[in-house]
Nucleic acid binder design. Structure first.
Length: 519
RNA sequence: GGCGAGAUAGCUCAGCUGGCUAGAGCGUUCGGUUCAUACCCGAAAGGUCGUGGGUUCGAUCCCCUCCCUCGCUACCA
């Protein structure tokens, strides 16, 4: 039986269209999911949208539509972008799904009945005109951050979760499972800022807005974000307080929750504690990935520097953008994206190193052998290092992927592609072609190249799915073994450029026109 | 303020528990080649490894001071 692998992204908040920074997460998850499938895992890959809350209620009002209509629109937009990015999620959950709502109510009730949740009062600084509570450090000059007027102490009835009851168990779990929170620095932040000082009880219901899942035994309350949003990971695969589905039993606990670094607290403190209270297993790993910055600024609409994934795809193509975000994002630090950098990466890596290698190799196979190439086994010492590197490639990629270093995994493959270009220069096929007695040697050289490219293309499938298929088609093979083989027989098709080189100046003009047309 | 991370070539970054002339990619300059998408290959230039101390036979890597950048510091998500 196949080993299961459950990976999730965070559910995207439907307050507006996600930019490339948000889109990075789904692409990263997709690369990992595709990789695991190739490795033979039974992968379940979930994503979706978080659709309740006050902010959405307000947005809907501003747009003169109902909250449901509003989230229907944004959720569709988000799903469309995920699809444009060619991501292979298995299921897309929305927190407005009926089953989710029902399960959340049951979970809330169960936690209440077992006294993990109790009714109390929420005390805080309240701005009456804005009808909102704020914390001390949200205030601007001691005044309401929204309207600038004075705030006052106020109380509101609310349900609370006794987090402190579980904090020792959670601390223990984090110590026993060093892989639970990644990267490491995030773990320290959680321990030092929250666990060590002691957890405060968490407010889990609201009465100040209505766009949420009602608490069924106390309907003036709606379930506040935590229990609503976080439980998506289990409700959608069949968790049920009264007995969960077989699917749930098969896939839970999740192997990896991939999330942005901004929501680590919810996933490494609140979520595990909710699960402990329910008596369920904890996810194996939570990875808080870094952010994608535009230049050195965080993207925001007010700065006017927002880049959307669908626009980038229109301008550069889906695999180019997948490549950029996967390759350029560091493991722990924030990465950045500019049009200049995207163009440089496409030209140097995709067009020159990869595209041109495939093109020149296939051209030679056509020119010297009418496209039909087999291994004639005429080796020389020049072949040694290339064959050694291809031989080790799958293992190296595997190691990097295991530690979620996706960019480094891709780099390993490109290392071999670079090596292949060098190999052509060293073996000089065009010289061999002039000497009839070197025909056998020439064919071995071309074979080594074709086979190396096949291995690389196969390994590139998780990152550049369309391009990988194109390469394999040009090679005329459907062999997707990740090891170098000695005995394939190639009958290649006509070469066709994979990525056009981009003229930076012309492209920038095109981009400016494109953006000004959108305004 | 507290806690945490980081500061290495023009740019983006590698450098495991201290040890050969500090590395890679991109960019720049020069040279080579022609199978190929003016591509590819090679070479060079370019770093007092943030500051000032200390430990050591020896420190980019350990300790301390200082300077700077960034993140977290609980109910927006």
């Amino acid at each position: 039986m196949k080993e299961k692998y459950y990976i999730s992204t965070a559910i995207a908040y439907t307050s507006g269209k996600p930019h490339i920074g948000n889109t990075y997460e789904i692409v990263l998850a997709d690369a990992i999911a595709r990789y695991k499938r190739i490795k033979g895992y039974d992968v379940y890959f979930q994503t979706g949208t978080d659709e309740h809350g006050e902010k959405i209620e307000i947005k809907a009002r501003e747009n003169n539509v109902s909250p449901q209509e509003y989230v229907d629109g944004v959720a569709a937009e988000i799903k469309a972008i995920w699809d444009i990015m060619n991501t292979s999620y298995d299921r897309f959950i929305r927190t407005t799904d009926k089953n989710h709502e029902k399960q959340v109510q049951k979970i809330f009730k169960k936690l209440y009945e077992q006294d993990d949740i109790y009714k109390g009062t929420y005390e805080g600084l309240y701005c009456t005109p804005c009808e909102s509570f704020f914390t001390e450090n949200q205030l601007v000059d001691g005044k309401c951050p929204d309207c600038g007027r004075a705030v006052k102490q106020a109380k509101e009835e609310a349900y609370f979760f006794r987090l402190s009851k579980y904090q020792d168990r959670l601390m223990e779990h984090i110590k026993l499972h060093p892989e639970f929170i990644r990267p490491e620095s995030r773990k320290k932040e959680m321990i030092n800022n929250f666990l060590k000082p002691g957890l405060q009880d968490l407010c889990v219901s609201r009465t100040s807005f209505t766009w949420g899942i009602p608490v069924d035994f106390d309907p003036k309350h709606v379930v506040y974000v935590w229990i609503d949003a976080l439980t998506n990971y289990i409700t959608n695969i069949g968790y049920d307080v009264d007995g969960s589905s077989l699917e749930y039993k098969k896939y839970w606990p999740a192997d990896l929750h991939l999330i942005g670094k901004d929501i680590i607290r919810f996933h490494t403190i609140y979520w595990p504690i909710i699960l402990m209270a329910l008596g369920e297993e904890l996810p194996k790993q939570v990875f808080g990935h870094p952010w994608m910055l535009f230049g050195s600024d965080k993207m925001s609409k007010s700065k006017g520097n927002v880049i959307y994934a669908d626009d980038l795809v229109k301008l550069f193509g889906v695999d180019a953008i997948r490549y950029y975000v996967l390759h350029e994002m560091p493991f722990a630090n924030d990465g950045n994206i500019t049009y200049d950098l995207v163009i440089e990466r496409i030209n140097s890596d995709l067009a020159n190193i990869l595209g041109n290698l495939v093109n020149r190799t296939i051209s030679m196979a056509q020119k010297y052998f009418e496209g039909r190439v087999r291994n004639t086994n005429v080796y020389t010492s020049l072949d040694k290092s290339l064959l050694l590197e291809v031989g080790e490639l799958a293992k190296k990629v595997d190691d990097k992927m295991d530690s979620l270093e996706v960019g480094a995994a891709i780099e390993e493959i490109f290392q071999v592609l670079r090596k292949s270009n060098k190999y052509i220069d060293e073996t000089m096929p065009w010289i061999l072609a002039k000497d009839e007695t070197e025909k056998g040697r020439l064919e071995t050289v071309i074979y080594n190249l074709l086979e190396t490219i096949r291995v690389c293309a196969t390994l590139l499938r998780p990152y550049l799915p369309d391009t990988a298929i194109k390469i394999l088609n040009q090679l005329g093979t459907n062999d997707e073994d990740m090891e170098f083989k000695q005995d394939l027989i190639y009958c290649v098709n006509d070469p066709e450029p994979l990525f056009q080189r981009i003229d930076k100046i012309k492209k920038m003009e095109e981009i400016n026109t494109f953006l000004s047309n959108k305004m």
